[in-house]
Amino acid sequence: MRIGITSPIVTRLPGTYDEWEAAAGIDELTRIAVTADRLGFHHLTCSEHVAVPVSVAEVRGGTYWDPSVTLGYLAARTERIRLATQVLVLGYHHPLEIAKRYGTLDTVSGGRLVLGLGVGSLEEEFTLLDVPFTDRGARADDALAALRASLSTREPSYRGDFFEYSDVVVDPCAVQPRVPLWIGGRTRRSLRRACEFGDGWVPFGLPLDEVTAMLDARPQPDGFEVVLSVSGLDPIGDPDRTRRRLDRAIAAGATIVGAGVRARSADHYCDQLSGLAELFGRDFGDLGTT
């Protein structure tokens, strides 16, 4: 079992972020990323929305840093930690756009990219970007197949129901022979999609017992990752509860935990990460390996 961090600052969902994050910027985020990298955490994250309607932002939040720019910057400041999009919305991009942009990120980071991908559910944003919404599931499946065929290939070719291309050069491409694809979602179909096209599943908004039941009902491929988020951790103030919550996630089927800690400042956040690492003692060094 490995532990990554659900990055603070870059996404602000109402009622879920700490007050200091509203005034924090790239310096604070970098300090946290460098600390997580030094301590051996598995990954950090950055999500995606392009433009959220004001009325929707009251529920979903309106702050979403662009993942390609953010992770590209953090790639230059870190050495080991994986850089995870959690998640890109497939419908907003052509597969070759993702292959080029994030293949470049994989190159400049030395092969540390994890592509978290999702179908998307914000119809107003699809409409704003003039991309199809009603058949987004089928389009996402085709995009995933196209990405798998294209990410690590300089001259990709693909022919599917929605995407078709050949005789093109995408250079640079990803340096990893197989970029990990983590599929986000909260339905059985998302788990099916993850098992068929991806390397892992990132469920959200589901009780742990429901996650376990869904995993039990569908066999996963060898090496398949289940990435469960555990937020609001206080490893310094309440280490016993922190450990119990992580243990429950592991028991539910997590192979990787995306941890979010409570903090009063960026410095306190770094202290909390150190506390989380200390909670696992000598075993923590293994958590940061892949």
Rank of each mutant, 00 (worst) to 15 (best):
Q86L: 12
Q176M: 11
S121I: 15
Y165W: 07
W65A: 09
L71C: 06
V87P: 04
R159K: 09
E79G: 02
P172M: 07
L71F: 03
L147P: 01
A145Q: 15
V59Y: 04
K100A: 05
E125H: 13
L71K: 05
D106P: 13
D66V: 12
A194M: 10
V169C: 00
T104K: 10
R154M: 06
P172N: 07
R139S: 04
E124D: 10
P67D: 07
V179C: 01
G137L: 12
L74N: 02
F126D: 11
W182P: 02
F163A: 11
T107R: 08
G116F: 13
R136L: 03
A174V: 11
R193V: 04
R178A: 12
R189T: 15
A174G: 08
R186Q: 14
S157I: 15
Y158H: 08
S68G: 06
T85L: 01
P180T: 06
R192F: 07
T63H: 14
D130F: 09
G160M: 05
V56I: 08
R80K: 15
V59M: 05
V108Q: 01
T63Y: 13
G62A: 14
S157C: 14
V108L: 01
R186P: 09
R178T: 13
F162C: 06
S109D: 00
Y92E: 12
E124N: 10
S166W: 07
S166G: 09
R188M: 10
L129M: 11
P67Y: 04
E164G: 15
D106A: 11
W182H: 02
A194R: 10
A143F: 08
V119W: 07
G160T: 06
F162H: 09
G160S: 05
L90Y: 00
L96E: 05
L90P: 00
V175I: 03
G160H: 05
E58T: 13
Y64S: 10
V89P: 09
G110W: 00
D130Q: 09
D106Q: 13
A146D: 11
L83G: 03
G111E: 02
R136F: 04
L71Q: 06
E155S: 14
E155F: 13
P156H: 11
S121F: 15
G72W: 06
S157N: 14
E125S: 10
S55V: 15
P177L: 09
P53F: 03
A57K: 00
P172F: 05
E58H: 14
R139H: 05
V169G: 04
G111I: 02
R112A: 02
D171T: 14
